[in-house]
Amino acid sequence: MKLKKIHKNEQDEPWPSSEQILCIGGANLDRKIMIKGTFQLHTSNPSSTSLQSCGGVARNVAENLGRLSRRVSLLTAVGDDAEGEFIIEQSSRYMHVIPLQVKGESSTGVYTALLNEHGEMIVATAEMEIYDQIRPSVIFENIPLIASSRLVLLDTNFSMNVIAATIHVCLEHQVPLVVSSVSASKMRKLPRNLHGVEWLVCQPEEAEAYLGLELKDDQQILDAARVFHKLGVQNVIIICGAERVLFASQDGTYGQIPIHPFQQVIDVTGADDAFIAGMIYGITQGYPMEQVCQFGISCVDLTIQTDRTVSDTISMNKLHSRFQELYGTHSQNFVFFKGVYFKKKNT
């Protein structure tokens, strides 16, 4: 296996300025197959033609941010194959791509999702062996890129050592870091020392996998967030399906935002990536925590109304418009008291 790093002097663009967001992690080829009628195990199921597009959590977040008029770079790994070339070519329209091209047997990551007729995922497969080829030295070689970024988004597709190195570098250079859990199995790759993680975004089952706890209700989820605080995370956001988003900060801010039923759901693929992009937009614009979550939900609403992993309709104006439709001009405050969430009265 040979690793080809495309250095700064091989790029047309310079290293990003402090205004730029850096996304580190997966860039895959996404394949989506929609089942016609009721899905049945152990037999053949009729399906529609497979849709193929660029995917990967970090890459999807980066494209969403690019469509939201943010300056963004992507540090990822692709194979020396047609799929890798396709991802680089397509992604470069919205971001500055810094590809680590793996020569040899390792191929570009491929994610295949099987969807029901309502666009909801039945099962998915992920061929991601390529990310195991990346070593922590890649992160240390790119310290100037990380240190000059306004914010870093890290997904958990790379190895445990690469993830730990990224967290360490961000802490050392005081760069705000957002971590996306990706999945329960990949969540376990996070180190036990999470100092340097400013924002952690996960689902209850992913928190359970990492902490070894059973989270049955909101109080237990809030307790889990406090455990993450003790491990070093400043802000924890836990997405509870299509029902609500819970948030908790080390400064004592905590609560939940209900997710109102969306008007139309065509395909939920990419919803979590859209949420992260929306919240990063809110963070970089200086919004408080609850509105950061509301921007995430608003971005999800725009995404799931299309059959694309990243909606081609997303823009900064549309995001603000949807935010105002869902939440109004002013923020909504929620507090937690004796196991129940209450909306604060306006003062």
Rank of each mutant, 00 (worst) to 15 (best):
V197F: 03
V197Y: 09
V201R: 00
C202E: 02
E206F: 13
A209R: 04
A209K: 03
L211F: 14
L211K: 13
G212M: 04
K216T: 05
K216R: 11
I221W: 05
D223W: 08
A224W: 06
A224S: 01
A225D: 09
A225W: 04
V227Y: 10
K230N: 15
G232V: 10
V233N: 12
Q234F: 15
V236T: 09
V236G: 08
I237W: 03
I238A: 07
C240Y: 03
A242G: 11
E243R: 12
V245T: 08
L246I: 07
A248S: 13
S249V: 10
Q250C: 14
D251T: 14
D251Q: 15
Y254F: 10
Y254A: 04
G255P: 01
Q256V: 00
I257T: 04
P258T: 05
I259H: 03
H260I: 15
H260G: 11
P261D: 05
P261W: 04
Q264L: 12
V265I: 10
G270C: 06
A271M: 03
D272N: 10
D273M: 05
A274C: 03
A274P: 02
A274G: 00
F275P: 01
I276K: 09
A277Q: 00
A277L: 02
G278H: 01
T284H: 01
T284P: 00
P288L: 12
V292E: 15
V292W: 13
V292H: 09
C293Y: 06
C293V: 14
C293R: 05
I297A: 11
I297F: 10
I297P: 01
S298G: 10
C299P: 00
D301N: 14
D301L: 09
D301F: 14
D301Y: 15
